[in-house]
């Protein structure tokens, strides 16, 4: 599998990039005339992959899409796609006919036979939800010209799980909240999110831990609210609030806890520069603090884009791609420390 050297959504800053790492919009759709994926036979799943391939590649999008048959892809390639946030872990690990279409610039991916027949997703760096919602509508309409999606006038787009029914749209924002974590105020975000019916998840979404103070905030309600109302709530209410919480905490750190802040930031950089063995979680934690240090101008000689790139390069799939072989956990820690040391020299 050919890949650019970096995930496009990690490369540029984008608006509010000190707190908002990236934004994602996902739409769940199912084809008329088939059972949902879990209930479908293997023959039907094969047929779904076949039809989806035709629909996607024959559409206007076809030209820029790369088709990956995930049942045939190596586990290393699948891991790479997960690390790039182009497929879910669930899809990577499933044992059935399944595929993904990825745009050349890695902003759009269409997963086939995830929980729903099609899950289309757009991802971009920084705070760009509005653009993404507009784009996903276009993708949806382009595919709709070639196929029929299951829809009912009462429930909207019909999905395998009723928690996605309606618009089938999930907005999620990856936020970097190190100051809220350092000041033990992260619970405040969790509670506020809960009240607004939002989910707070870890770096890789559902079921994952919040590695390196990165949190994904997404809507849980998909029914009874139009796409634009949902977007407005996110853009006007939810995100500014969380960004503001984090900024307040950063200000408190700089003004009242300078020593603690500088200790954490410089200590993190020192570990990254000298470690010979680095676990993924440990690396994420320190990179997160260095990232904070850069944004608060506590560190002068480290570039933000180096740190952003490292966040991806230290993941197991990317390390293995870099080395060109499958690595044992010990060798992975060693390779990770080498990559980090070299980048921060």
């Amino acid at each position: 599998m050919e890949f650019a050297s970096k995930g496009s959504w990690l490369s540029e800053g984008g608006p509010e990039a000190d707190v908002v790492m990236s934004c994602r919009v996902r739409a769940a759709r199912n084809l008329v005339g088939f059972p949902f994926v879990a209930r479908a036979s293997d023959a039907e799943r094969h047929e779904l992959v076949h039809i989806a391939k035709q629909v996607v590649l024959d559409s206007e999008l076809g030209q820029e899409m790369i088709w990956v048959d995930l049942a045939k892809a190596t586990s290393r390639d699948r891991q790479l796609l997960v690390e790039r946030h182009l497929i879910s872990r669930h899809l990577a690990e499933a044992d059935m006919p399944r595929a993904v279409a990825v745009s050349e610039d890695e902003t759009l991916s269409i997963m086939i036979n995830e929980e729903d027949h099609l899950r289309m997703q757009l991802i971009a760096p920084g705070f760009r939800l509005a653009e993404l919602v507009e784009q996903i509508e276009k993708v949806d309409e382009t595919l709709e010209q070639k196929t029929d999606f299951a829809f009912s006038s009462r429930w909207g787009y019909l999905t395998a799980c009723p928690t996605n029914v309606g618009t089938g749209i999930r907005l999620s924002v990856m936020m970097h909240l190190p100051a809220l974590k350092l000041t033990n105020e992260i619970e405040r975000v969790r509670r506020a999110a809960k009240d607004l019916h939002l989910a707070v998840r870890g770096y890789y979404g559902e079921g994952s831990e919040s590695a390196g103070d990165f949190y994904q905030i997404s809507n849980q309600v998909t029914l009874g609210q139009s796409e634009s109302e949902l977007l407005e709530e996110f853009v006007q209410v939810v995100l500014p609030r969380v960004i503001d919480y984090e900024h307040q905490s950063r200000k408190i750190l700089v003004e009242r806890n300078t020593n603690l802040l500088d200790d954490r930031v410089h200590r993190a950089l020192a570990v990254l520069r000298s470690a010979r063995l680095l676990g993924a979680e440990e690396a994420m934690k320190h990179l997160s603090r260095v990232r904070l240090g850069i944004h608060l101008r506590r560190l002068q000689d480290v570039q933000l884009d180096v740190i952003n790139r490292l966040l991806l390069q230290i993941q197991p799939g990317h390390l293995q791609l870099h080395i060109g072989a499958d690595l044992s956990p010990d060798r992975l820690r060693e390779a990770r420390a080498n990559v980090v040391r070299k980048a921060l020299r």
Binding site: V32, D140, E144, D148, G166, Q225, S226, E227
Partner: peptide, 28 residues
């Protein structure tokens, strides 16, 4: 009632409607 509880009290779709919805529903 389940959906209503899971979806914060919502009972009906208020978002986008696919252009061919009527057609496809009848056909199915």
């Amino acid at each position: 009632p389940l959906i209503e509880r899971a979806q914060n009290g919502a009972t009906h779709h208020r978002g986008k409607v696919p252009k061919r919805a009527g057609d496809s529903l009848d056909r199915t």
